[in-house]
Structure formats: C-alpha cells, structure tokens
Computed example of a mutant assay.
Amino acid sequence: MSHTAHIPSHRKPRQRASKSALRAGVAGGVLSTIAVAGAAGPAQAEPVTQTIEMPTITSGFSTAVAASAQATQQVALDLETQADEDAAAEKAAKTAKKAHAEAVRKAEAKKKAEAAAKVRAEAEAKERAERASRTSERTTLSASSGSSDSGSSASAPSSSSSNVSGSAASIVAFAKAQVGDAYVPGGTGPNSWDCSGLTQAAYRTAGIDLPRVSQSQSTFGTQVSLDNLQPGDILYWGSAGSAYHVAIYIGGGEFVGAQNSNTGTVQRSLDYDRPTGAVRVL
C-alpha cells in the first residue's frame, strides 16, 4: 500500500472538483435557461405600454400668439386712423365747400347792396330835385291862393286840372306837388304823409280845416256820386263814417293819395283802386 493512500485529499478532491464544476455548469445552464425563459415569457404574455412625452412648446407658442395679437391690433389701429383721416378730409372738404358758397353769397349780397346803394343815391338825388321843384311850386301856390280869395283864377299845373280854378285849383296843385313823398302812419308833412294828413294839408291851402282822420273826412261835406266828381272832391274807401282811406280827386279820372309805405304818395287812375264814395266840401 502506498504511503499516500491514507491521505484523504490526495485524489478525492480532484473528483469533487470535477463534479463540483460539472454541477456548477449544469446548474448554471439550468439557471440561465430559466432566466432566459423567464425573461422571454412575460414579454409575450403582457404588452408593454409606452408613454411618449412631447417637448414643451408653451413659451414659444405664447410669444407667437402675442406677436399675432399685437399685429392684429396694429392693423385695427391703422384702419381706425385711416377712417379718422378720411372722415376729417371729408369734413374739411364740406367745410371748404360751405365756406366757398358763403363767400359767393356774401359777394353777391355785397354786389346787390352796392347796386341798391347806387339806385338809392340816384333816387335821393332825384327826390331832392323834386323837393326843390315842389318848394318852388308851393311858393307859387301861396301866391295863387291869395289871388283866388280876391276873385282871380289860378290855372292848374297839368292838363287833367287845366279847367280847375279857385280853391279847388289850390287843393289839386298842392296834392300833385306831394307826389313822391313818403307814406308814414300819422304823417302830416312836409315831406311824409298819411292819407288823411295829406288831404287835411291840401284843404288848408284853401283855408278849410278838415277833421284829422279818414272816418270823419268821409262825412265832412256832401255825398256825391262817383259819376259826378269834380276836382278837389274827397274820395274814400270803406263806408261813410268808417272809411279806412281817403284821397283827393284831381280831375281827368285820376286821384292823388298817400297810399302806403311801399308806394308812398302817388297819382293814380280811379281804375287802379276804385273808391267806395266821395264827398264835396267846396
């Protein structure tokens, strides 16, 4: 017997090592297989759900939206500004048109005023000349009146009263001399009259005092027909005692009267304004 046979670890440890290695290898393979099977098994049995997170874009999006809003607001402001400018331009055009029309109107009014002033100046010059002429006639009438009182005759200044003499001639001549004078309510001369003021002044040249107003003059004297008139008769409009207008018949189918503020004192045909009646004072 070998002297090493009694040493337990001389050969047996090699067998154990080999078996241990084998066992380890088998065990390792089995465990590997199980591990692989375990890893593969659940993948087939249960699906994997994955959640994908998108990148955050809030900051950039907000900036873009803000920029778009600002641009929209700017466009709105531009449109509003343009609308205001258009409205202002339209208003300015209307104002200019109105100003032009007003300037044209004022120019026309000024032109008319100048023309009216020229006409008025000419009329005043003519009236002054006529007044000077009437003053001369009145001086002559005063002398004629004195002559008529002594029995002499005074010839009429126009063909319509050429056959009138005495007091009637004085009344007619005075009335005709006032033609062109103004009509003024309550006027009693010397250059403006109302209707009864004129007849009263005319009769005064013949030494006759008539009542002041038309109503009283229409009954002062004898009522005569309009077909039988004589120069110097008083014509009246309205009824006797309530007449609203009077004038003096001068012959030839005509009368002189202070008519109204538009016409003044005029000489007219009876057909111009037919009177209602007449009275004879002389």
Score class of each variant (00 low, 15 high):
32 S>E: 05
209 D>S: 14
239 S>T: 15
44 Q>F: 14
158 S>M: 02
282 L>R: 09
47 P>K: 08
212 R>N: 06
232 G>H: 01
85 E>M: 11
240 A>P: 13
140 T>M: 09
254 E>Y: 04
4 T>P: 00
61 F>A: 15
114 E>H: 11
39 A>E: 11
183 Y>R: 02
70 Q>P: 03
104 V>L: 15
2 S>Q: 13
229 L>K: 07
23 R>M: 09
159 S>K: 02
224 V>T: 06
90 E>N: 11
218 S>W: 07
269 S>A: 09
40 A>F: 05
230 Q>W: 04
49 T>D: 11
18 S>C: 09
128 R>V: 09
278 A>E: 07
7 I>N: 14
40 A>T: 11
262 N>V: 11
143 A>D: 09
247 A>L: 00
117 A>M: 08
104 V>T: 15
252 G>R: 05
114 E>C: 02
156 A>G: 14
103 A>E: 12
180 G>I: 00
108 E>T: 15
178 Q>H: 01
100 H>D: 13
248 I>G: 02
263 T>G: 05
257 G>Y: 02
178 Q>Y: 06
177 A>K: 03
67 A>C: 03
266 V>A: 09
10 H>W: 11
58 T>K: 10
66 A>V: 10
136 S>E: 10
276 T>G: 00
223 Q>W: 01
17 A>H: 13
77 L>C: 03
192 S>C: 06
251 G>D: 03
60 G>W: 01
230 Q>D: 02
51 T>A: 14
252 G>M: 08
260 N>S: 13
48 V>E: 14
90 E>I: 08
152 S>H: 00
209 D>P: 05
172 V>R: 02
264 G>Q: 02
85 E>K: 15
176 K>F: 00
145 S>E: 01
244 Y>G: 05
240 A>F: 09
36 V>E: 08
127 E>C: 01
173 A>P: 01
146 G>L: 10
71 A>C: 03
98 K>M: 12
186 G>T: 02
124 E>Q: 08
241 G>M: 08
272 Y>G: 06
248 I>Y: 07
253 G>V: 07
230 Q>S: 12
269 S>I: 07
233 D>M: 03
100 H>M: 05
7 I>Q: 15
227 D>Q: 14
10 H>N: 13
218 S>K: 05
268 R>Q: 14
228 N>F: 05
37 A>Q: 08
8 P>I: 08
114 E>A: 15
189 G>W: 02
34 I>R: 03
14 R>P: 04
217 Q>P: 10
62 S>M: 14
28 G>F: 15
70 Q>A: 15
120 R>V: 12
9 S>H: 13
203 Y>T: 02
135 T>V: 10
